[in-house]
């Protein structure tokens, strides 16, 4: 597994030396900042009104009314942005033929796949950490509960892992980065909305579709509930995506 760290390290180096990362990160932070600001503004307006009319704190909750919707929105922004981060992972290597260096080296394919995944994961972790200024801000001006914030971030982080896993898989299919991004995006969006089919599908199958949906599992994390079944769902999703990536790349050796 040491080799996957080597690969991840190299991958990160090229992320940080290319403008893509900085542009993506800036766009992410600007949009998230805008959303956060507006949610916070709405919250303060409402609590002001409530205190005027009823003369009392209506039990408004920072966690429920600011952090939860903010993180929910962040999940959507990540859905749009992560395919841009993952699209280059294998597509670019295929295009520039550098993949031959990796494949002719005495390292296992799974180490290569894991390395790519870890690098993207590190990038997204950096982005999530940068976005946490919003929570620090709330800590400075109010008293949000830290537990649900932590579990919400954990849920987002795991969900981002799923996006990355799907994106890396899409990237392994093609040497065209745009196709990789579009397929990765389409795949994650589909997994996001797959629960909508529940009604049409009928009771039994519908439950399954609901369970497969990425977004349903996030709800509980955002509310502060860390259910092992949700965590296991995300981890399984990640591993399955990486497994498919491995199969696609491996098939080059026997196809």
């Amino acid at each position: 597994m040491k080799q996957s760290l080597t690969i991840a390290k190299r991958e990160l180096g090229s992320f940080f030396s290319s403008p893509v990362f900085y542009v993506v990160c800036a766009v992410f932070l600007i949009i998230y900042g805008f959303i956060f600001f507006n949610i916070l503004n709405y919250f303060s307006l409402q609590s002001l009104q409530a205190s005027q009319f009823q003369g009392m704190d209506a039990g408004f909750n920072l966690n429920e009314m600011v952090i939860e919707p903010s993180l929910q929105n962040m999940a959507v922004i990540l859905l749009l942005i992560i395919p841009i981060i993952t699209m280059r992972s294998f597509s670019e290597e295929k295009k520039t033929k550098t993949i031959n260096l990796l494949l002719s080296s005495p390292i296992h394919l799974k180490e290569i796949v894991a390395g790519k995944f870890l690098a993207c994961m590190a990038v997204v972790t950096v982005m999530l950490l940068l976005s946490s200024y919003s929570v620090l801000f709330l800590l400075a001006i109010g008293k949000p509960e830290i537990g649900p914030v932590a579990s919400g971030y954990l849920g987002l982080w795991l969900m981002a892992g799923c996006y990355i896993s799907a994106g890396v898989f899409a990237s392994s299919l093609t040497d065209n980065q745009i196709i990789a991004a579009v397929v990765g995006f389409g795949f994650t969006l589909f997994m996001w909305i797959i629960g909508w089919g529940a009604q049409a599908a009928g009771p039994g199958f519908g439950e399954l579709l609901k369970f497969l949906s990425l977004v349903d599992h996030l709800e509980r994390f955002l509310k502060g509930i860390v259910d092992s079944s949700d965590a296991i769902y995300y981890l399984t999703f990640i591993v399955f995506g990486l497994f498919l990536t491995h199969r696609v790349l491996d098939s080059k050796r026997w196809r």
Binding site: R10, G13, S14, S17, T96, K97, T98, L101, S104
Partner: peptide, 15 residues
């Protein structure tokens, strides 16, 4: 035990 130089040298341009 092999060293391979493919037709297109596999180089990471940004390194």
């Amino acid at each position: 035990i092999i060293g391979f130089l493919p037709e297109t040298p596999p180089l990471y341009a940004e390194m």
